[in-house]
């Protein structure tokens, strides 16, 4: 561990990697709470895959991949909304159709894009290859996401908890849905370098779900989720650096390990305590206590 810390101090690339992955862990954790509570996990998976053609086109045009990704993400969520509203196709099928089409298009476009672009690093991330520009993009996105969530926390809470009440308040549910989609796209873009397109959904869902098992209050859930996201990133980075493993995969497995701990040992919802309680109650019932 101390060797790792010394390396962090010595190597600029490692500092960038650490800084970027912690920010990614935090913002994925925050947005992930709303994705999980809105029941949009599949949508999160879809949007993250669907940014690929946008990234490819950005490379072709020589602009920051941020712009293309946002356009592709928004087009996808609009497309999914259109198919599920205007036809009898159910929402989950609409999601499957649209995002796999975008992803497929992205694979072809990536092959056509400049040869310097490495499809694998976009798909799976490579945190040790984070450049300064990526770090600043991630930081800027992080600031935007956190400010937006803080400013519109009330509106996000009420539209997530009770959309009917939100509509009665006169809140634009649909607009807020698309705003969440845009935030989701931004977070995906920020995560490209660290965990990659394929696994970013885990960073959105897993830390948020871990937090969900531990608390009954949304502000606490958001805080814990951000903490678990950042912690997973740090653990993942450490292991991936020391054992030369794929960073995105290790970060996701670290998040999963935290989730499993909560699943079994959470004081409120943990499966272990639940089974202890059940068997105690059963015993009490048998002995007539």
């Amino acid at each position: 561990m101390s060797g790792f810390l010394a390396d962090v101090l010595d190597y600029g690339f490692l500092q960038k990697a650490m800084f970027t992955s912690v920010i990614v862990g935090i913002i994925c954790g925050v947005i992930g709470c709303f994705i999980v509570l809105r029941g949009m996990s599949l949508m999160g998976d879809a949007i993250s895959h669907a940014v690929l053609p946008g990234v490819a086109i950005s490379y072709m045009l020589g602009v920051n991949y941020f712009y293309g990704a946002v356009v592709a993400g928004v087009l996808t969520s609009v497309g999914i909304g259109f198919v599920s509203e205007k036809s009898r196709i159910k929402n989950d099928s609409a999601i499957g159709i649209i995002f796999s089409a975008f992803f497929a298009l992205g694979i072809i476009l990536m092959a056509k894009a400049a040869s310097s672009v490495d499809l694998t690093s976009i798909l799976f991330g490579n945190v040790l290859a984070v450049r300064s520009a990526d770090m600043w993009t991630t930081l800027a996105i992080g600031v935007i996401v956190l400010i937006t969530v803080t400013m519109f926390y009330k509106e996000l809470l009420v539209t997530t908890f009770d959309p009917t009440l939100a509509a009665a308040f006169g809140l634009p549910n649909r607009l807020i849905h698309y705003a969440v989609m845009v935030l989701l796209t931004l977070v995906t873009v920020a995560s490209l370098r660290t965990v990659g397109i394929i696994l970013v959904v885990a960073m959105l869902i897993t830390p948020a779900s871990t937090a969900y098992l531990l608390t009954d209050r949304l502000p606490v859930m958001i805080g814990l989720s951000a903490l678990f996201g950042a912690l997973s990133s740090l653990i993942g980075l450490y292991i991936s650096f020391n054992y030369n493993l794929s960073s995105g995969a290790v970060i996701v497995l670290a998040a999963t390990a935290l989730f499993l701990l909560a699943l079994f040992f959470s004081p409120k919802q943990g499966l272990l305590w639940r089974s202890v309680r059940t068997s105690r109650n059963r015993k009490a019932a048998y002995t007539g206590d």
């Binding site: 809470l157 009917t164 608390t215 009954d216 209050r217």
Partner: peptide
């Protein structure tokens, strides 16, 4: 609204 329209597991 009718009570049925709400997610009762929501952390609130």
């Amino acid at each position: 609204p009718q009570r049925s329209s709400i997610d009762w597991d929501f952390p609130i």
